[in-house]
Design a protein around this nucleic acid. Structure first.
Lengths: 176, 176
DNA sequence: CTATGTGAATTTATTCACAGCA
DNA sequence: TGCTGTGAATAAATTCACATAG
C-alpha cells in the first residue's frame, strides 16, 4: 500500500505520511509501498500499544457506564479491569463482569498493576480523585471532567469534555 | 486579572496568552490586566458561542444516554433539542424531557432549525447517519464512532473516540 | 511602575522536489 | 519505472524583549 493510498484514507497528503514515518525510520519499500501488517506492528510499538494494559474506571454514572459498555478498547489492547464509585448503592453491583468497588479501595491499584485510569466523576470531585489515583501509582489519566487537573509532571493527563468538543464546531461552520 | 494569572490557570506561559489575544485585538488594559467578564464575552463571540444553539443526538445507546444526561452543554449555550434512534423499542420513550424519535424523522431537522448533530451510533451505521444529517441541513457533526466520515467540505466533522484518547496516554508514560 | 501588545529572533512544522533504491 | 525517504525551501508557530499606554 502506497503513501498515497494511506493519505486518502485519513485525508492528508502523501508527503505528510512519508515525512512522519521517516522520523521513526524507513518502514516501506521503494517502488512498492508499505506492508500494512508490518506497519501496524511498528507503529503499535512506537506508541507503546504493543502490550495489553489494564485501566481503572472511577465514577460509574451515566458516562462511566457508557465507558464500561464501550467495546472499542480492546482494539488498542486495553482492558477495563476495575471500576470504582462512591455511591454505596452501586458498590457491589456488577456491570460486564466488572464488580464495582468502593473508592476507598483505589489504593489497591498498585498491587493490581493498574497504572491507567479513567475519571468520570462530577467536576468537583475530579481533583481529589486524581490525587488518590496518583498515590495509588497511576501514571496516566483520561479525564472526562471539564476541569484542569494539577498533577506532578510524571503523570500524563488527557482531558476531554463532550461539551467542549461540540463547542469547537460553530467556529468552523458557515454563517450563523 | 493579568495574563500571568490566566496562564497559571491553564498551564501555559503569559506571553502565549497575550500573543494569542493580540491576533484578535487588544482585550486588556496596560498596567491593569484583563476584565474577565468582558474577556469571556469577546471570546464567546469569536468562537461563535454567543448564541444558543440546538443540537440533535442520533443513537440513544449507552453513550447516547450519557450525552443526553450530561449537564455540561448549557455552559457553552448548547441545548440537545432532539434525539433519534433506529430501535423501535426506544422510540417514543422520554429521557430528560426529550422524546426519542425514529431515525426516519431526521429529515425534519431543517424545519426545526437544528444544524448541529452528535452521532453515537455503531461504527457501521455512522457514514449513512452522517449522510442523512447532511441532507437534513446539518453543518456540524460531533462523531463518537471510531471511523472517518467522508463529507462535503462545507460540513465540519469532529471525531472523538474514547478508546483512542486512552490510547494516547501510554506514549507519554514513563517505563513500560 | 505595572502589565499589555507587538515587532524581531528563534524554533518548529509543512511543503516541495528529486535522488536513490527495489 | 514507481514509490520511498530526505535534504532544501518555505511557512508557521513560539519565544523573547521592550516600547508604550494606563
Amino acid at each position: 500500500m502506497s503513501s498515497q493510498d494511506l493519505a486518502n484514507f485519513v485525508g492528508v497528503n502523501s508527503w505528510q505520511i512519508r515525512k512522519d514515518f521517516s522520523y521513526f525510520g524507513g518502514f516501506g519499500t521503494r517502488g512498492v509501498g508499505y506492508d500494512t501488517r508490518k506497519l501496524t506492528k511498528q507503529i503499535s510499538k512506537i506508541l507503546k500499544l504493543d502490550v495489553v494494559r489494564k485501566a481503572a474506571l472511577v465514577g460509574v454514572g451515566n458516562l462511566g457506564s457508557a465507558v464500561l459498555a464501550y467495546p472499542g478498547f480492546k482494539m488498542f489492547g486495553f482492558e477495563i479491569a476495575a471500576a470504582f464509585d462512591i455511591n454505596s448503592k452501586k458498590v457491589g453491583r456488577k456491570i460486564k463482569d466488572i464488580k464495582i468497588e468502593d473508592v476507598s479501595r483505589l489504593r489497591t491499584l498498585k498491587k493490581r498493576k493498574i497504572n491507567l485510569a479513567i475519571i468520570a466523576v462530577p467536576g468537583d470531585a475530579a481533583q481529589q480523585t486524581a490525587d488518590s489515583l496518583v498515590k495509588a501509582g497511576v501514571r496516566g489519566i483520561l479525564n472526562f471532567s471539564p476541569c484542569y487537573l494539577a498533577m506532578p509532571k510524571n503523570v500524563k493527563v488527557i482531558t476531554t469534555d463532550i461539551a467542549m468538543d461540540l463547542a469547537r464546531l460553530p467556529y468552523y461552520m458557515p454563517t450563523s
